[in-house]
């Protein structure tokens, strides 16, 4: 049994690691996707309610999107480091 596990680990090790990394990266991109959707959705609503404030809303929205994207970037880095 131990030999079989060792053989599987040696044969599948790199590809398994790569596959799990890709799945992890995909999972890490879900959170920012939801976050960006919420940020932009609420920003569009705010701009529709108060069009005169759209400059301020877009500024805050852009920074919010950038912060949400940082999570995806962390996922990328952790996958390949």
């Amino acid at each position: 049994m131990h030999t079989v596990i060792t053989l599987l680990a040696n044969d599948l090790g790199p590809s398994l690691k790569s596959g799990l990394g890709s799945i992890g990266y995909g999972l890490a991109a879900i959170g920012p996707g939801i976050g960006i959707g919420m940020i932009v959705g609420n920003s569009v609503q705010a701009m529709a309610r108060q069009p005169e404030m759209s400059g301020t809303v877009r500024t805050t929205m852009f920074l919010g999107i950038a912060f949400a994207e940082a999570l995806a970037l962390i996922g990328f880095v952790l996958t390949f480091i």
């Binding site: 920012p32 959707g37 932009v40 569009v44 759209s54 877009r58 950038a66 995806a72």
Partner: peptide, 28 residues
């Protein structure tokens, strides 16, 4: 990101939602 969002916000804010998400995926 700024160029895409700024361009869409000025041209057609109605597309902001979709373009932002596609821009996120594209840049990723």
């Amino acid at each position: 990101s700024a160029w895409i969002l700024g361009y869409v916000a000025r041209q057609n804010p109605g597309l902001l939602m979709g373009v932002t998400l596609f821009s996120f995926v594209f840049r990723l």
